[in-house]
Write a protein that binds this DNA or RNA. Structure first.
Length: 676
DNA sequence: GAGCACTGC
């Protein structure tokens, strides 16, 4: 600890914190900021007036860093130093330093918006720009004004965006702490390889790419002349590897043998492999993006940011001086790469986050004007509002409903929390909990579906239930039921997360009186009836993810978004009936654009359930939802005049006239919609 | 008939 670079800056850091409500710390890798900042402020006495908290984007980090700090202070973990992550709260009344995931801090601020228990909040790794961190940044900006006298906020970030964060917090002070990395020499390519996979040495991005590259490297090594170079082992490293395979990348190689680790961006931040000396950086990453106009996700190969490139290079210098080969020219790095990764908030569906913000009841609540470090597009926010309206979380004026409040409390995406609430009414809550958990927990209840397993499998594939013709949600439920009847065969799947997930949600509901009935009582209901009820609940929860079959073929048209022609994903259990047709209406869990636009996880719903949704869609008026109607009038000044006049509906009138203007705007909107 | 970057409550 004593030789960590940050320790020399203790006096300066503590002084700056004493004198300012917000401080940005630029701490390079290995500076010790994650373990030391909290201890410095503890020594300075900040733990006398509250807890010093440090947020982390990942659970493992919260656990491992708190463990180190407890060790350094010579206390037992969970006493003076503790951590809180989902499913696990290891803090006590004596806790003075608390590490937690940013998701947990957001949850806490729902029940205690002032976060009074904390004297210091440190948002660590803010440059990763996780959705939760970005929301916390906005909330912190408000909170430091309200608790100016007794709250300190520290934000740690990377060199390249420190200035921006400081500007966001009214030009707060910015301190830079050097890291403790060995020098890494950077080599650029003269040009970009035509295909990042075809040229022989490079990192890959996806599981598929990694498997291909691993076997290419193996061939190459085998074809080398005996003794012409060191022996080599080639190891894949990505998130969908089973843990025991992941571990292999971490064990040191046998003597005289070189490790080739072919990794996704999991090795960029989440995992640190010791002993890496050379890094080959393709300059690309696979990123999931959401298109708010279509409701569609896609997984795209995109250029990395400078922060990511530096992070990758840094992996070579942790144990001794290293080298990084960048498969792109330095011009590309300097001119083409963005400084910082596009924040998640600008490439995800925001329904959950908007509902969360609404449920906080901030006094001047206008979601479109919430102070984000990097605001998401208006289109994206309006998409979120539309979705929330269709599932009854907000009313036509954009105000949160009581259903919406209950939904916000549940640790699920809004469509699933809405489904649970409805299922509770219909007496099929336990089934809905199962489906929600199966969809949201990453479980492998379905035994090995990958190609490799297919080849290697000695036994015929297991007969899976067929969803009784209703689709994937029902199949998921049936799979769980089979598994349940077979006494939870652990060999068949990993069950732990799933069990925890179901238990957490059912406990939360019981404790807060959301659930009117005991979850277990429903267990013995007639299944068929519960399938129908469950599907009905799903139709309400997924009202914003509804699709209608085309009259003459099996394509579907999405309703609620700009209409998209989509297909049922081939992996779905839902198959055409005897006439060769799919059901007239389905709800889907997500739209994913791969080779074509597909609906993944679909559930057949009935026409009579769909009618109210269509009526609601007809009435939908985004302007009212976003507060652009009553009570929210932008004043025309010389400064904003030209901007405002560009907008379609500027309302600058007396309140009585507003209604009629809004009516007129609405009619125009509907007329336009009719034309399309 | 297709395909799974990575997190988090």
């Amino acid at each position: 600890m004593a030789n960590l670079p940050i320790v020399q800056f203790e006096k300066k850091i503590v002084e700056t914190v004493d004198q300012n409500p917000v401080v940005v710390i630029i701490g390079e890798t290995g500076s010790g900021k994650s373990t030391q900042l909290s201890q410095m402020l503890h020594r300075k006495g900040y733990t006398n007036s509250g807890i010093v908290s440090v947020t982390q984007p990942r659970r493992v980090a919260a656990v491992s860093v708190s463990r180190r700090v407890a060790q350094e202070l010579g206390v037992r973990l969970g006493e003076e130093v503790g951590y809180a992550i989902r499913f696990e709260d290891r803090t006590s009344e004596r806790t003075q330093i608390k590490y937690l995931t940013d998701g947990v801090l957001l949850r806490e601020s729902l029940s205690n918006p002032e976060l009074n228990q904390y004297s210091v909040i440190i948002l660590d790794e803010a440059h990763e720009r996780s959705l939760n961190t970005d929301i916390l940044l906005g909330l912190m900006k408000r909170l430091v004004r309200r608790r100016a006298s007794n709250l300190k906020v520290l934000i740690t970030s990377a060199t390249l965006d420190g200035e921006k964060v400081s500007k966001f917090f009214s030009d707060c002070p910015l301190l830079t702490v050097p890291g403790k990395l060995f020098p890494v020499e950077i080599f650029y390519s003269k040009e970009r390889p035509i295909s990042y996979l075809e040229s022989s040495l490079k990192t890959a991005m996806g599981m598929d790419d990694i498997e291909k590259l691993v076997s290419k490297l193996e061939d190459k090594v085998r074809s080398l002349e005996e003794g012409s170079c060191m022996d080599a082992i080639i190891l894949p490293l990505h998130g969908s590897l089973p843990p025991e395979m992941q571990v292999r990348a971490f064990s040191p190689p046998p003597p005289n043998c070189r490790r080739f680790i072919v990794a996704t961006n999991i090795a960029e931040t989440s995992l640190t492999v010791d002993g890496v000396v050379y890094v080959i950086d393709s300059g690309y990453v696979k990123q999931r993006q959401y298109n708010p106009a279509t409701g569609m996700y896609s997984l795209d190969v995109v250029q990395i940011s400078k922060v990511q490139a530096n992070q990758r290079a840094g992996r070579a210098g942790r144990t001794r001086p290293g080298k990084c080969y960048r498969l792109y020219p330095s011009r590309v790095y300097h001119d083409d790469f963005l400084d910082v990764t596009v924040p998640e908030i600008q490439r995800s569906s925001l329904a959950g986050s908007v509902l969360y913000l609404k449920s906080l009841d901030l006094p001047d609540i206008d979601i479109l004007k919430f102070d984000f470090l990097d605001p998401p597009s208006t289109e994206s926010l309006e998409d979120a509002l539309k979705q929330l309206y269709l599932i009854d979380a907000i009313d036509e004026n954009g105000s949160i409903t009581s259903i919406g409040r209950t939904m916000a409390e549940l640790p699920l995406e809004p469509s699933l929390s809405r489904t649970l609430i409805e299922a509770n009414e219909y007496g099929c809550l336990s089934q809905a909990l199962t489906v929600a958990a199966m969809l949201s927990a990453e479980t492998n209840l379905l035994p090995g579906r990958s190609k490799n397993n297919e080849k290697k499998r000695k036994y015929p594939p297991l007969e899976l239930p067929d969803g009784s013709g209703f689709g994937d949600h029902i199949q998921l439920l049936q799979i769980y039921e089979c598994w349940d009847e077979n006494d939870y065969d652990i060999g068949w799947c990993k069950d732990y997360d799933l069990q925890m997930c179901i238990r957490q949600m059912s406990d939360m509901g019981i404790e807060s009186d959301y659930w009117s009935s005991d979850v277990r009582v429903n267990q013995n209901q007639k299944r068929r009836q519960s399938y129908r009820n469950l599907r009905k609940a799903l139709s309400i929860g997924f009202a914003s993810q509804l699709a209608e079959r085309m009259r003459h073929h099996n394509g579907f048209r999405t309703l609620g978004f700009k209409p998209q022609l989509v297909q049922v994903h081939p992996s779905s259990v839902l198959k055409p009936d005897d006439d060769g047709l799919y059901p007239n209406y389905v709800v889907y869990h997500e739209l994913i654009a791969t080779s074509r636009p597909y609906m993944r996880n679909v559930c057949a719903v009935e026409r009579q359930w769909v009618i109210p949704i269509l009526e609601k869609l007809d009435k939908l008026d985004v302007r009212k939802l976003s507060g652009g109607g009553l009570g929210h009038v932008e004043e025309i000044t010389e400064g904003n005049k030209s901007d405002l006049l560009k907008k379609e509906a500027v309302i600058v009138t007396a309140p009585e006239e507003q209604e009629s203007k809004i009516q007129a705007a609405r009619e125009r909107f509907l007329a336009r919609k009719g034309k399309k």
